[in-house]
Design a protein around this nucleic acid. Structure first.
Length: 393
DNA sequence: CCTCCACAGGAAGCGCAGGAGT
DNA sequence: ACTCCTGCGCTTCCTGTGGAGG
């Protein structure tokens, strides 16, 4: 690619580079009519000025939760004769009750948006604002599991319904973690889960449709082979049914084809992109890890290379947790870093597991009373390479 | 059978940083 | 500018589990 092409955003393939962005909202969302309708029905009372049911939306990444919700919000904004106001809050950024409130205030009451006001004051402005013309208010809490004091947040928002004389507040919560439901206070749970909606992963043919739509919206004609799209959707469907992953494959393949000055994107580029994307995902996951989790992971990778013990399918090498910890201690010391306690490393191990970098299982019968057997889900060489680079080992 | 080993994971508590309230 | 409070990362302590060995 020439520099001027990059600057002017000229591409041999793309009319609109945005179609490949994870934030791009296509004109019509495919395969999610039912889900969209369910959201519409859930918020319909709110739009009529009554208090609707709160809705909880669950689904894995790249299943269209956020897209669908944003679409419905857009629809609301096109209706002019209703007294409903909406705030979309990404809780990854606004991750506490206070922050969520300041976000809502700055969306609608910008005079109070500057910092320095306490929560009770903001809460009263919020109540006054709803009461002034009996409006209804809808908050969308995306990635709601990121909120530290979610119990308090949900309580405060739902209490607003008791404090206002007219109008009301409804909540839509979105999450990709199912397990966090158990952590919640029972009252919070029943408030938030008045209505529930699950997004299932896309199947291969649906991913194909989604990719095809993007190609039609943003690519020049005859630049992408259908076979390539089918292949990319098959890969993504097999992995997780994640549309974002499928799009990433297409984006990377486009990049590769541009570099090689090809005229068409074929299966071959997708295949190459796949390797790239997978490595990028692993590298990204590892490099964003806290230092000591990296060291622990490194220790597991080292132990794994030397271990000859195989797990059931005979492919995965397993590591005993004690062994990994010993190695972690010596690695830390050789780097002049104070090693963390064993208790905390157990937490690290479950963190690494929930990130999908390792898998663990109880030893069960036969081996060492009660221990965890750890196996890496990615090649140890790759993991070692990334971490060695970081610590210049 | 009892004790010891090797480990899991809960509970309490500690120091710190940063934000809220004054 | 000050203290007070709270969440966070972490350690220490503790209880529980199951195999190995006397």
């Amino acid at each position: 690619m020439e520099l001027k092409d990059i600057v002017t955003n000229e591409s041999a393939f793309l009319k609109d580079r945005n179609v490949l962005s994870p934030h791009y909202l296509p004109n019509t969302l495919l395969y999610r009519d039912e889900e969209m309708n369910k959201i519409r029905y859930a918020i319909a009372p709110t739009l009529k000025g009554e208090r609707g049911k709160n809705l909880f939306i669950y689904g894995k990444t790249g299943t269209g939760k956020t897209c669908c919700t944003k679409k419905v919000i857009e629809e609301i904004k096109t209706i002019t004769d209703i007294k409903t106001k909406v705030s979309y809050v990404n809780c990854r950024i606004y991750n506490s009750r206070y922050r969520v409130f300041t976000k809502i205030i700055s969306d609608h009451l910008s005079t109070y948006a500057k910092s320095g006001y306490g929560l009770p004051f903001l809460y009263e402005r919020f109540i006054d604002w709803i009461e002034e013309d009996g409006k209804t208010f809808l908050v969308v809490l995306d990635e709601v599991d990121m909120v530290k004091d979610l119990d308090e947040l949900v309580y405060t928002l739902s209490r607003a319904n008791d404090d206002v004389k007219s109008g009301g507040v409804s909540i839509i919560g979105i999450s990709n973690k199912l397990s966090f439901k158990e952590r919640l206070d029972p009252r919070t749970r029943s408030t938030l889960y008045e209505d529930e909606l699950v997004f299932t992963p896309y199947i291969s043919s649906q991913l194909f449709g989604i990719l095809k739509q993007r190609v039609e919206e943003g690519f020049k004609e005859n630049t992408v082979e259908e076979e390539a799209l089918a292949y990319a959707s098959a890969i993504a469907a097999k992995e997780s049914g994640d549309a974002r992953y499928a799009l990433k494959l297409l984006a990377k393949a486009t990049e590769l084809a541009e570099q090689k000055k090809l005229s068409k994107i074929t299966k071959k580029e997708i295949d190459e992109a796949r390797k790239n994307v997978e490595e990028e995902i692993i590298d990204e996951a590892i490099t964003t890890l806290p230092e000591h989790q990296q060291l622990l992971l490194y220790a597991i990778a080292c132990s794994s290379e030397k271990s000859f013990q195989k797990l059931n399918d005979g492919k995965e090498r397993i590591v005993f947790s004690g062994e990994a910890y010993d190695r972690y201690i010596s690695i830390s010391k050789s780097l002049k870093k104070e090693p963390k306690s064993i208790r905390w490393c157990r937490e690290y191990i479950s963190d690494l597991e929930s990130l999908g970098l390792i898998r663990t299982q109880e030893s069960g019968k036969g081996i060492r009373g009660h221990t965890k057997l750890i196996s890496l889900l990615y090649p140890p060489e790759r993991i070692k390479k990334v971490i060695e680079k970081k610590f210049s080992l």
